[in-house]
Simulated scan of single mutants.
Amino acid sequence: MATELTINISIDVLEKAEELNAQEREAMQLAQDAAKDAYAPYSNYLVGATLLLEDGTFFKGSNQENAAYPSGLCAERTALFGMSANHPNKKIKLIAVTARRREDTHFLPAMPCGACRQVMAEYEHKQHDKIPVLLQGPDGSFYRFKAVSDLLPFLFTSDNL
């Protein structure tokens, strides 16, 4: 007999930037700045991501497209892979992600793709500690998740191998 499994995920919805703490505001501003550096000549969809590391430093990434699809890479993964290559033993304390269309000045809701969620989950699993995620929401709002696992509740990790 089948049983029902219910998953509850709590998301803080913040209506404006003033509701973010100082580090979250800085991380989101840096993510917005990183979006300006995106190489997105095909989609014109600019994505920026920022990682807050345990020592208080920030590490940015932006999406990088390529005419030979799917050779490009999302902002979240450029930030994570770059950080890991340069600071392999530092823990991540926050991931912030934002996006906008090239022709727009306002930012759009930014939801990581499935591949990025999986990579983010791998880093959360690797550091044995939750990584909060801050995403740009609609109309200047923000979504604060307590952990990457809230974005991908059934994680595939090395424990599954």
Rank of each mutant, 00 (worst) to 15 (best):
Y123P: 06
Q64C: 10
R100C: 05
N66C: 14
R25L: 13
L73P: 07
E18P: 00
A67I: 15
L51E: 04
Q64S: 11
V133H: 04
L108D: 12
K60F: 01
E65H: 04
E24T: 05
F107D: 02
A99V: 02
P88E: 03
N21C: 08
G114K: 09
A121H: 08
N89H: 14
H87E: 14
R77I: 13
K91P: 07
R100F: 06
Y69D: 10
G48Y: 00
H87T: 13
K93E: 14
K93L: 13
N89G: 10
V97R: 03
L135A: 02
Q136K: 13
A34Y: 01
D104M: 10
L94W: 05
G137N: 00
Q118Y: 10
A99M: 10
L30Y: 04
L53W: 06
H125K: 13
Y39N: 14
T98Y: 00
G82Y: 03
S62V: 02
N21D: 14
D55E: 09
E19T: 08
A68D: 13
I92Q: 06
L73V: 13
G114M: 10
V119W: 10
I95Q: 07
E103P: 00
S84Y: 13
D37C: 07
N89S: 12
P138M: 09
M83L: 14
G61N: 01
Y69K: 11
P70R: 06
N66R: 12
K126P: 02
A17W: 08
A121W: 00
I92G: 05
A27E: 03
I131E: 08
G72P: 07
L51V: 01
P132K: 07
D33G: 07
P138K: 11
P88W: 00
Y39D: 11
M83G: 02
F58V: 03
R100S: 04
L108T: 11
F59W: 11
P88T: 01
I95K: 05
E19N: 08
R101G: 12
K91E: 14
G56L: 07
E124R: 05
T78F: 01
G48W: 01
A75M: 05
D37E: 12
A49N: 07
E76T: 07
K16G: 00
E65V: 06
A34I: 00
A38H: 02
P112L: 04
Y123C: 05
Q118T: 15
Y39W: 10
S71G: 11
L52W: 01
C74A: 15
I131F: 08
H125C: 10
P112C: 07
Q127S: 06
E54M: 08
K16L: 03
R100A: 02
Y45I: 15
M120A: 15
G137A: 03
A68Y: 13
E24N: 04
C74H: 15
A79E: 00
V119G: 08
G82T: 04
D55P: 06
E65T: 05
L94H: 05
L53V: 08
L20N: 03
S71R: 15
A35F: 02
F107P: 01
E122M: 14
N89D: 15
E122A: 13
D55I: 05
Q29R: 15
V97P: 00
E54A: 13
L135N: 01
A27N: 04
R77F: 05
M83I: 07
Y45F: 12
A31W: 01
H125I: 10
A17I: 15
F107Y: 15
T98M: 03
T57R: 15
Q136F: 06
T78R: 01
V119E: 15
P112W: 04
I95R: 06
